[in-house]
Design a protein around this nucleic acid. Structure first.
Length: 896
DNA sequence: GCGGACTGCTTACCT
DNA sequence: ACAGGTAAGCAGTCCGCG
């Protein structure tokens, strides 16, 4: 297959115009007032021939210019430059109807957005053969799709059967690629790479070569020289994307405060009925500012802010907003926490209400996002809310996605607690409070060498998405987009989801859990008890390895070659293609290899400079996030390349793999204590046995099995996904035990943590006797304090449970936290899905009360003792202890 | 009318 | 808006019980 390398692209075939000419055109466009006013500063800031190397950070469709607009960030000046498309690229979609047939469709030909037809040869990946399709080219993206009615993509299948001479079923009329965002389509077609470095030459965007990075790419290729050609090509492409340097970012963090008459309620940003009384900024180039609105009756206050914070007092809100907007017209990156839904939205509507003209406001308000006309807005709330980011990039270090909790967990900085409402604060109290929020937002962006921005940049490169989109969308979009890029590059039609499903069908195995689509992983029954010297062996990224080694993808699974039907997937009726490599297998497989063999080791290599190592660590983290989701997306019907048999096959091969490992392990005379999905826990294996197992796995299964960690000892009950392991250095892994779940009362958690600390000190089996005595004491102590109602405050007894749904939607049952939430609501507290409910168990109906309303004497102590019991049982039976006996003894003592 | 066996719902966790 | 598997507690239902 003749393919161009990614670094060779970008000499657009179409006639190009220099940006000056575009600028002249832009000047004839109806320039907005603000644009004219900004012109002395050079607005729009065009990317001209002499532009220094700049990062492609964002792309959008500029409706006024009717062109794609690309934002380039030039790190030396710290400014954004605009580059408008000058190749005449137009939006389009494909159809299997011929030009002749399409011409009969009146509504299409007369559509104001219709431009022309082209005939193109493409490969249909579901048929695996070349097809001729008609490209319907439009004048603007909304003509293809996006309007509620009368779009080309709907007209074609609706109208053709009616105008056809032959009876045609509307399902046989196909339209492809009509739902791809226009600027994404542009990015794929022009093969420009978001996040990478560009210059402007003869009006075109040209990639800038960085020799140092190319050298590393070369080194990586050398390391993978034994891999086959097709795979190597992809390794090279990924490596180039990941080795090129990141810029130093120039950015500002922002936060606003609004004075609302009802302090418990968040002001509505659509109405923006109340004044913006304070705005703070904290920037990478040293600006620390608090802008305050003069309020009648406000006290000066006595709080101290850091000396370098500049406080500015405004006598009108208009002037304050103008000063805020000046900052937003200036910075290439603006960072907020929830700015999409609050800060930027509120500012915009407030400004409208105060009579600002549209073009004086630097914000573009969308349905769910707020973008900037000049720079790039990153909403950290959206980014940290992303489950994959939360779990895999930050190892679940923060639990609630609030500025305070994320700040505490990642940068050790909490919000300032407020006892009064915003309106009752003095100037300095308000300034201090507001400034702290900007400070946390800033530090969440700057910490660990600007990790967050670099992570977003790396993900933008991998997924070919603008930084704004990548920071707001989920991992399935990232994966979809790099798959789309590859389809376009190979001139493959991007299949419609319903066609994949129709051709490849559904699943064949039966899930254990009711309502699931197919059978998943194996969990081995644990051997209860205390076990010394336990080696945990696992497959690094098992599912991506399977996708790679077994050539899994929507094309290859259940392919139509008769000779492949014998290439069976164990434990399923499925087979997989022998003849042609699937794209998913290639792309995910090469990413996996790069992470495991290059980025993971480099991120730990102490011989490298700290900043290089930190970049490698960011990259391996980005790859981890993508690889961890790369199997799940095939089983998610929201994914555009949804293919249930691919997900099912992956899980089935996983079961087959771990089953074989267990069989081989036992053959080698090693006891398997436990295992889950991709891991086995081995009792006291010898070095020799481990080596033999590793070699056998590599040879027979073509996959690496590593020793992940060795526990000095591990404690298992009979429960799956429940254990405690003490590592050689004394640190303790607790998995799944109630004692670590976040909803349990602090009072019980403290006792559990004491036991954990005591167990960490145990080195030999003999040490256990003393440890058991101490643990018994801990439990008795906790029990007695409950019985005597000796706790410091009611919060210690609170269960903290997330409200998963809106309150009204609990119709089938009423769980306890919902009961407590309803009591809160009756008392005027506003609650929504995602809120944490803190409640205490009490004696009288309905047996729960919100913490703040409960008193010491109504606490149902026995319920807490029962909870203490079940929490400790998970460990006690393995230690040969019995909760009732421990408690019984104290009862005896009391009566003696 | 009441208690035990059972199922279903909900949340939090593991890989 | 990535997947399935497991634990735990409680809500709700059904059935038997002179």
């Amino acid at each position: 297959m003749a393919q161009r390398r990614l670094d060779e692209f970008s000499t657009p075939k179409a006639r190009t115009k220099p940006q000056e000419e575009i600028k002249k055109e832009a000047e004839t466009l109806p320039l907005t007032e603000a644009m004219k006013k900004e012109k002395n500063r050079g607005f729009p800031p065009l990317a001209l021939e002499n532009l220094s190397p700049s990062y492609f950070v964002s792309a959008n469709y500029d409706g006024k210019a009717g062109k794609v607009l690309i934002k380039l960030y030039e790190p030396v000046s710290g400014r954004i430059y605009f580059w408008y498309d000058n190749t005449g690229h137009k939006p389009y979609c494909y159809t299997n109807l011929s030009q002749y047939e399409l011409e009969k469709i009146d509504r299409l030909i007369k559509h104001p957005g219709f431009d022309h037809f082209e005939i193109e040869e493409k490969v249909d990946p579901l048929l695996d053969k070349p097809v001729k399709v008609t490209k319907i080219v439009a004048k603007d993206p909304l003509a293809i799709g996006g309007r509620p009615q009368g779009c080309i993509r709907d007209i074609v299948p609706e109208d053709f059967p009616k105008v056809s001479d032959m009876p045609v079923a509307s399902e046989s009329v196909k339209v492809w690629e009509s739902k791809i965002k226009y600027y994404q389509s542009y990015i794929y077609d022009r093969e420009i790479l978001p996040g990478m470095i560009y210059e402007v030459k003869n009006g075109s965007l040209v990639p800038r070569r960085v020799e140092e990075a190319e050298k590393m790419v070369h080194q990586i290729i050398g390391m993978f020289k034994d891999t086959d050609c097709e795979e190597l090509e992809h390794i090279e492409q990924w490596a180039r994307l990941l080795e090129y340097p990141a810029p130093k970012f120039r950015y500002v963090a922002m936060d606003i405060e609004v004075q609302s008459p009802i302090p418990t309620r968040m002001p509505d940003p659509r109405e923006a009925a109340h004044p913006v009384v304070c705005v703070s900024f904290y920037s990478s180039d040293g600006q620390k500012r608090v802008l305050l609105l003069k309020r009648s009756g406000a006290r000066e206050g006595t709080e101290h802010l850091p000396a370098d914070v500049k406080i500015e007092l405004f006598d009108s809100e208009e002037k304050l907003l103008k000063a805020v907007f000046d900052v937003l017209w200036d910075y290439p990156f603006v960072v907020t926490f929830n700015g999409d839904d609050f800060d930027l939205r509120y500012l915009t509507h407030r400004a409208e209400g105060l009579g600002f003209r549209r073009d004086e406001v630097p914000i573009e308000v969308g349905k769910r996002v707020c973008l900037l006309k000049y720079g790039v807005h990153i909403d950290l709330y959206k980014f940290f809310f992303n489950r994959s980011i939360q779990i895999y990039a930050f190892n679940n270090r923060y639990r609630d996605v609030t500025l305070g909790d994320v700040g505490k967990a990642l940068v050790g900085l909490d919000k300032i607690p407020l006892e009064k409402s915003i309106g009752d604060l003095s100037y300095t109290e308000l300034a201090k409070y507001c400034f702290r929020d900007s400070e946390i937002t800033y530090k969440l962006t700057s910490f660990e060498d600007e990790l967050v921005l670099k992570l977003i940049l790396a993900l933008a490169r991998i997924s070919s998405m603008p930084m704004e989109d990548v920071s707001r969308q989920g991992v399935s979009r990232w994966i979809r987009n790099f798959m789309h890029r590859e389809h376009r590059r190979r001139k493959m039609l991007i299949p419609n989801a319903e066609d994949i499903l129709a051709v490849k069908g559904k699943t064949a195995t039966k899930a254990i859990i009711k309502g699931k689509k197919y059978k998943g992983a194996i969990v081995v029954e644990p051997v209860p008890g205390v076990h010394f010297n336990v080696a945990v062996m696992d497959f690094p990224s098992l599912y991506p390895s399977i996708i790679k080694v077994w050539n899994l993808g929507y094309q290859s699974i259940l392919c139509n070659h008769p000779e492949c039907k014998t290439n069976r997937i164990p434990d399923t009726p499925h087979w997989v293609c022998r003849k042609k490599r699937a794209l998913e297998s290639l792309l995910i497989g090469s990413l996996r290899d790069l992470r495991v063999q290059w980025y993971k080791p480099k991120s730990k290599d102490k011989t490298l400079r700290a900043e290089i190592r930190s970049w490698y660590n960011i990259i391996q983290g980005a790859l981890k996030v993508i690889l961890n989701a790369s199997y799940g997306v095939f089983g998610a019907d929201s994914f555009d390349l949804y293919c249930p048999p691919v997900a099912e096959a992956t899980a089935a091969i996983g079961r087959h793999t771990i089953t074989q490992i267990i069989r081989k392990t036992e053959e080698l005379g090693i006891q398997v204590l436990y295992g889950d999905t991709d891991s086995v826990f081995l009792k006291n294996p010898s070095k020799e046995q481990i080596r033999e197992l590793e070699e056998w796995t590599e040879r027979e299964l073509k996959m690496g099995l590593d020793v992940d960690k060795v526990y000095r000892y591990a404690v298992f009950s009979s429960r799956k996904k429940n254990y405690l392991g003490v590592l050689e250095d004394g640190s303790v892994d607790v998995k799944g035990l109630t004692g670590k779940k976040r909803h349990i009362p602090v009072f019980i958690k403290k006792a559990f943590d004491r036991m954990k600390e005591r167990l960490a000190m145990v080195k030999t089996p003999a040490d256990f006797e003393a440890a058991k005595k101490d643990i018994i004491q801990t439990i008795r102590d906790c029990y007695m304090r409950l019985k005597r109602r000796e706790w410091e405050n009611m919060n210690e007894l609170a269960f903290n449970v997330v409200l998963g749904e809106e309150l009204e939607r609990y119709t089938k049952t009423t769980p306890q936290h919902v009961k407590a939430a309803r009591i809160l609501k009756e008392n005027g507290v506003e609650l929504k899905a995602g809120d944490l409910i803190s409640f205490v168990k009490v004696v009288n109906e309905p047996h729960v009360k919100p913490v703040e309303m409960a008193t010491k004497n109504e606490v149902d102590v026995d319920k807490y003792i029962a909870y203490l019991h079940s929490t400790f049982d998970q460990v006690l039976d393995a230690l040969g202890l019995d909760f009732d006996e421990i408690i019984g003894l104290t009862k005896l003592e009391r009566f003696m």
